[in-house]
């Protein structure tokens, strides 16, 4: 049940990025806004991929895949 914090973290990052994007756009720094969105997206991607790899290793151990996968 610890992983729920991960969920909230990712949702928080997503919302913060969106807000930053709109704020920077109003300030006129259009390219900075795109950069912030991109970096935020990469951070979220790293978190999710890491979590996914943990899941796959656990699946491998539970379902006794040794050789095939």
């Amino acid at each position: 049940m610890i992983d729920i914090y991960l969920l909230f973290q990712v949702a928080g990052i997503g919302i913060i990025i969106a807000m930053l994007h709109t704020i920077l756009k109003q300030m006129g720094k259009e390219d900075m806004a795109h950069w912030v969105t991109l970096i935020g997206f990469i951070i979220v991607l790293v978190i999710v991929v890491d979590y996914l790899s943990r899941l796959f290793t656990q699946i491998r151990s539970v379902f006794m895949f040794q050789m095939l996968m």
Binding site: V10, G14, I15, I17, T37, F41
Partner: peptide, 21 residues
């Protein structure tokens, strides 16, 4: 739903995360 309004890609990543959870 909230995140998907603002940013589709992170919304999709969030669905992926919920699935893995």
């Amino acid at each position: 739903i909230v995140v998907r309004e603002k940013n589709h890609s992170i919304g999709f990543l969030l669905t992926l995360l919920t699935g893995t959870l």
